[in-house]
């Protein structure tokens, strides 16, 4: 069979695994925030709460002095403050999942990265490039979600983990490690579930939206709106835990706390999981129609 001239040499077909071809998409998504100046500024803003906790940790171990090691003074502190000290599980979980602490950081990060991930490709018709290269819609969606999840996890999972490791290494003795190592697997699992579930919902919304701006607005409305409604209903009904059945952020937070072993009053874990699964099912049904192969070319 002679079908080619002397200059051009077609590449021989070399089978490659799906993972090998999806990995660049994961990497592109993971680094998406760092390709613009504003993205880097946003990332630094998101790091700021972790820096405050690092300062607290350094003060607690005595490396920063505010009139003596906080560790020795905490016995006189109020109970709420004592629970937020580095040797307590809440120090690692609450700054991420409590609306008053972690909501803005999470909202900022997911709105800027996750909500734009697929909508951006649709609006620029980049889906053509993927589909015609044999990237399946499911593989593409999975890679986009993984890249975005890993990026958001740097704030929600890696940062608390780094604080814990730092606390263990900076402590005078092994007491800190001994006291905290028991709950850390639960903390990590809880924060992973928290991040995975909310980024999953966000990227489903991104797959549905026609433009990145629309996706960002829809995500803010869904996350912020459900939280606001949850707060309103809770204050009107005066029933503890009702917010976790309405607010997506509170529902994911309830799951994270449950896995970390933090007691919660009046919270239904089943209700929180059902809310997240229900919303995910509706969004997934819509996203499936929007990510068909036929959507590309012409």
């Amino acid at each position: 069979m002679t079908i080619y001239g002397t200059q051009y040499r077609p590449a021989p077909y070399a089978p490659t695994s799906a993972w090998q071809r999806l990995l660049p998409i994961v990497r592109l998504e993971f680094t998406s925030l760092f390709r613009s100046r504003w993205g880097i500024v946003a990332f630094c803003l998101c790091v700021f709460p972790s820096v405050i906790r690092l300062v607290m940790l350094l003060a607690w171990v005595g490396l920063l002095s505010f009139g003596g090691p906080v560790r020795r003074m905490q016995g006189n502190a109020p109970r709420e403050l004592q629970e937020m000290m580095p040797e307590g599980v809440r120090f690692y979980v609450e700054p991420i999942v409590a609306p008053e602490h972690g909501f803005m950081v999470f909202m900022l990060l997911t709105t800027l990265v996750t909500a734009r991930a697929i909508a951006k490709d649709r609006s620029t018709n980049a889906l053509e490039f993927y589909w015609t290269r044999g990237i399946s819609p499911l593989g593409y969606f999975g890679a986009k979600w993984l890249g975005s999840f890993l990026l958001v996890s740097t704030m929600t999972v890696a940062a608390p983990l780094v604080l814990w490791v730092a606390g263990s290494l900076l402590s005078d003795d092994w007491t800190f490690l001994h006291d905290t190592v028991g709950f850390m697997p639960g903390v990590v699992a809880g924060l992973l579930v928290f991040t995975a579930s909310l980024t999953f919902l966000c990227i489903l919304l991104s797959a549905i939206a026609g433009s990145p701006n629309l996706a960002m607005i829809l995500w803010c409305l869904l996350l912020g709106g459900s939280w606001a409604v949850g707060e309103m209903v809770q204050s009107m009904s005066r029933t503890a835990g009702v917010g976790s059945r309405i607010s997506l952020f509170d529902a994911a937070g309830a799951l994270a706390r449950a896995l970390a072993g933090i007691p919660q009053r009046g919270v239904s874990i089943g209700g929180a999981a059902a809310l997240l699964l229900g919303v995910a099912a509706v969004l997934a049904a819509l996203a499936r129609r929007r990510l068909r192969l036929q959507e590309a070319v012409g």
Binding site: P15, S17, A126, I135
Partner: peptide, 28 residues
């Protein structure tokens, strides 16, 4: 198969070489 679409919208923040290299990476 090589496909050249008609729409004039690409990843604006990538360099020309980074974009083409990235497309190649999608081929493995």
């Amino acid at each position: 198969l090589g496909f050249c679409p008609d729409l004039d919208r690409l990843y604006e923040r990538l360099s020309g070489r980074a974009f083409v290299a990235w497309m190649l990476r999608l081929h493995g």
